[in-house]
Structure formats: C-alpha cells, structure tokens
C-alpha cells in the first residue's frame, strides 16, 4: 500500500514522469529527484518559506505538499522563473540593493515577491512586508528586500522617474 505512485507533471516547462513514494514531499522531490536544488529546505514544517514554489500559478510551501499531489500540475521553481527571464528585473533590483546576504531565503523570497507584484502592481511598503511575512530572512533585516521589491514595482508600473 505504501508503494510508489506514478505522477506526471510539468516542471519549468518540461514534462516530468516519475514514480514517487507517497511520503515524498514536493520540496524533496524537486531537490533530490529533479536536482532542482534552488528550492531550499529551511524548516520542513511550513514556517520559514524557503521552499516556496509555484503550483498551477500559485505560490505554495513545497514542504507542505506531497509530490503525489502535483499529478497533472504545473510546477515552477526559481530555476524556471530565472531562465525564462520572468523575474530578471526583480533579480536586478535585489542585486543593486544587496537584498540578499547568504542567499538561502532568496529563491523563496523572490517567488513570494513576484507573486505579490503579479497581484498588486503598486504595493506600498506595508503591503510588501505583509506579503513576505511568511518568508524568514535571518541576514538582511528585510529592509533591503522591501526596497528592492518597491523599486521593481515602480519600474514595472512605469512610474520610475
């Protein structure tokens, strides 16, 4: 009964067929089976946000989702949104603002930030802080991250003077 289950999904635009044990969570599936190690594991109980990825367009905690639940789903990771260029401007703003230090939270942080920018074109600082409130960063103190996201939002809105 605990046998592996066949799943078929789309990861970063590529078709993936896999046999996974039910207990394998999505974060471990991405990291260990697909070797997409940009998705990080920080707490494994859904608090730190380092494992944030997109499933069917929505951000989720990949440690709180089983790989078997992604059958027929579309999964996007930091590698995918980097290679597609989707967040190139956001990454550039992070670079200019030094909005990362050790970088361990950064993939999850970028996924959460992009999620906000897609939903809300010109968030204020409080909204940015609120949207990131489930993503832990021990290094930066968050201000540089908020700055970088704010800069990106303004640039995207074409209001940067």
């Amino acid at each position: 009964m605990t046998a592996a289950v066949e799943i078929s999904l789309n990861v970063n635009g590529e078709r993936v067929e896999a046999n996974v044990l039910p207990r394998l969570n999505l974060a471990d599936f991405l990291r260990e089976h697909l070797e997409l190690t940009g998705t990080h594991v920080g707490c494994e109980h859904g608090v730190c946000g380092a494992c944030t990825v997109r499933v069917n367009g929505d951000i989720v905690r990949s440690c709180l989702m089983l790989a078997v639940q992604t059958h027929n789903a579309t999964v996007e990771t930091i590698e995918g949104v980097s290679d597609s260029g989707e967040i190139a401007d956001l990454q550039s703003a992070f670079r200019e603002r030094n909005a990362l230090q050790c970088g361990f939270c950064t993939p999850g942080m970028l996924m959460a930030a992009q999620d906000l920018l897609k939903q809300s074109p010109c968030p204020d600082r409080e909204q940015i802080r609120e949207h990131l409130s489930g993503n832990y960063c021990r290094c930066t103190g968050y201000q540089a991250i908020v700055d970088a996201i704010e800069t990106t939002a303004r640039a995207r809105a074409g209001r940067l003077t």
């Binding site: 859904g46 946000g49 944030t52 929505d58 951000i59 989720v60 905690r61 709180l64 989702m65 959460a112 999620d115 906000l116 949207h131 409130s133 489930g134 993503n135």
Partner: peptide, 9 residues
C-alpha cells in the same frame, strides 16, 4: 490566516 502561500493551499 497564516501567509499567502499557506492560504493558497
């Protein structure tokens, strides 16, 4: 309730 990524699931 929690945070955006949690609310999505």
């Amino acid at each position: 309730v929690a945070h955006p990524a949690i609310r999505n699931r």
